[in-house]
Amino acid sequence: MNNPEADGLATANQPVDETDFVILGRVRQLFDETDPMPADLPGRIRFALALRDLETEMARVAADEDAPVLAVRGEERSRTITFESDSLVIMIRVGANPDGTARLDGWLDPPGARQVEVSTSGPPLTVLADEDGRFAFGSVPRGRAQLTVRPESPGLPGARAVVTPELIL
């Protein structure tokens, strides 16, 4: 073996074997010594995850009227999705604006003047639902989006935000 570079390229397509894992083990050891993860980081992450349980409630998709058909840009059709969590049902209808953005109309059940936030690829948008639980975002950028419904009285014990899974507008 004379030219390590040539040899390296020649064996690049071969399956990873035990020798490779021995080498990777050495690389790991090297970086464990030179740049280790802070020992308390996992604990802090677990704490953050546990805290989230106390503060938020996950909603799941209960019904997606035309799940396989995403609302297509510019097309005059809408899509209705229902999310539900233990304490709240969120229904949204996604429509298309002529400018290519999405329009989002929603209802909360039980109704309440709760703050509704939609996080997108851009800055998050916030509206307040009315007493009947209705809310609307006139123009939301297409792409990934996620809804968070804040508790009506955030100070109360047990008041939790409800978060939907991410959806594609």
Partner: peptide
Amino acid sequence: GPTRGRCLAKLRA
């Protein structure tokens, strides 16, 4: 399964 890939192959060599 996974191949060695160019980077690992070169380091190994």
